[in-house]
Design a protein around this nucleic acid. Structure first.
Lengths: 172, 172
DNA sequence: TATTGTTATACTCTATAACTATA
DNA sequence: TATAGTTATAGAGTATAACAATA
C-alpha cells in the first residue's frame, strides 16, 4: 500500500506548491456536514456544536481568561460572553474572578461539564460515522491525529511569538 | 512507515468507539480558522470561502442541477440561488435550461470560472500555510487525501442512490 | 490611559413559507 | 398533483461601538 503521487517526490523546502490541491474548501465542506449532523445529535443534551468546541478547549487547556479563550477559538470576545452564559447557566463551566487581576474571569470546566462533554462525545460518534463513513477506522484515526496536531500546534498563530512550541501533542 | 495504533487492532464491525476522541470539534475549529484567513486572502479576487467550495464542486462534479448542488453542498436550495447569482454576475458559472426538463438549470463552470478558481487556489496556499503550519508538507498531503476521500465518498449520503459512483478519487 | 468583560446593535448567514413555471 | 427554481422574510451567528470596572 504505497501511494504513487509522483508529483510530490521532489519536495523539501517548497512552502508554496501553488495551484496544487487545496484542503481549505474540503475542510469547510466537511465541517459543515459534521456540524449539521452534530446539531441534531447534540440537541437532546441541550448543547450546540459551538458549545462542544468550547468545552473541549476548556478541558484540554485548563483555566483561561475569556479573552484567551476568544483568541483560541478565533471568535470575537463579545460572543464568548453569550457562549459562556449558556454553559454557566447549565453549570458546565465556572467563572471566577482572578485574584491577581480582578478584571479577569478565570473560566474552568466543572465536574458536571466534564461529564456532559463526555456524554456529548459519545453521542457524536454516530454523527462521525455518517460524515466520515467513507473512511476506514484506521484512516479516521489518522485524520484525528492530523487534525489535532494542526489545531493544537498553532493555537495562537499570529498573536504572540511565544508558541514556537509546536508542542509534543503526539508526534508519533 | 507503518502505524502502531494498537487499540484499533481488534476492530471489525465496531461502529461506536464510545468516548474515544472525536474529530468533529477539531474539524469545526480548524475550518473556522481557515475560513477567517481565507476571507482576507480571497477578497481581492472578489470571492468568499463559500464561493470557492461551490466552484470546486462544480469543477470536480461537472454540470448539475441546482438542487443536486444544494444537496452536495449541504446547503438549503434557496441560498444556492444567491450564491450562483454572485458567481454568474462575475461570469464564473453558467446556468442553462435543461432541454430534457425545462424546470431545471444545468450549472457549469465557465473558462473564466476555472481560471479564477485556479488563481484562488494559489492565493489560498498562504492561508493554509498559516492554519496548517504545525504540519509537515507530507502530513498536509495526507490530510488533503483523507479529507478528499471523506468528502467525495459521501457526496449524497442520504439523498438518491444515483451516486453509488464514489468516483476514482484516489483509492490508492 | 489601557485592558477585561459586558451590553446594545447592525450585518451576514441560514432556513421557512409562498409564488411561478414546468412536469 | 408534484418538482425546480425564485423571492421575501424571520431567526441565528458574528462583528462593531460604547460603557463599567479595574489596572
Amino acid at each position: 500500500m504505497f501511494h504513487q503521487l509522483g508529483r510530490l517526490g521532489h519536495m523539501s523546502a517548497a512552502p508554496l506548491d501553488s495551484s496544487e490541491h487545496r484542503s481549505g474548501p474540503l475542510l469547510d465542506h466537511l465541517a459543515r456536514r459534521m456540524r449539521l449532523r452534530s446539531e441534531s445529535v447534540l440537541s437532546p443534551l441541550g448543547l450546540r456544536p459551538r458549545h462542544l468546541v468550547a468545552l473541549t478547549v476548556l478541558r484540554d487547556g485548563g483555566g483561561t481568561s475569556q479573552q484567551a479563550l476568544a483568541s483560541t477559538l478565533a471568535m470575537d470576545g463579545t460572543n464568548i460572553v453569550g457562549l459562556l452564559n449558556d454553559l454557566e447557566s447549565m453549570q458546565l463551566i465556572e467563572r471566577r474572578r482572578s485574584p491577581e487581576d480582578r478584571r479577569r474571569h478565570v473560566v474552568e470546566l466543572t465536574d458536571d461539564g466534564a461529564k456532559r462533554l463526555n456524554e456529548a462525545e459519545c453521542a457524536l460518534a454516530s454523527a462521525e460515522n455518517e460524515v466520515l463513513g467513507a473512511l476506514e477506522p484506521d484512516e479516521r484515526e489518522k485524520l484525528y491525529l492530523l487534525l489535532r496536531r494542526a489545531a493544537t500546534g498553532t493555537t495562537i498563530t499570529c498573536e504572540a511569538v511565544i508558541l514556537e512550541d509546536t508542542s509534543p501533542v503526539d508526534s508519533r
